[in-house]
Amino acid sequence: MEESQRILKYLTEVEEAAEDVLADKQQIVELDAKRNRNREALSALRYDSQSEEKVKVCFGNMFIKLPKATTNQMIQKDQEQLDKEISDLRKRLKAKVNNLHELQGKPELKGYNLSPLSNDELRAINSILKR
């Protein structure tokens, strides 16, 4: 009885950790979709042929007329926020994946926690890597 309780508790733990990882992944996907929509909006603003001063912006289920410059600024700010959020999520995701691996008794991924080489450094040793 006690044994089965212990196993159940362990399995719940693993499931929770896995669920957490999946939720974060989904979150990243959604944020990236938003980021891409924003990017489309920005380029639409840039190539807008009509030289009107104001554009219609959709907030929820309402269209509001706003000056172009303000809209541009707003979206760009949103973009920065999204970029930051995504990279934060990715950073946290690493710890969570490691945690999941540990719970499942898998070996920790090698080199997973290294910080990446900069572009210059990579170029210097590129000829070894591209073999």
Partner: peptide
């Protein structure tokens, strides 16, 4: 998943290889 992904590749090189290219 997302369109814009981050790809991480871990390489193992020997010190001798780095010596040679430098």
């Amino acid at each position: 998943g997302e369109l814009q992904k981050r790809k991480e590749v871990v390489h193992t090189v020997s010190l001798h290889e780095i010596d040679v290219i430098n």
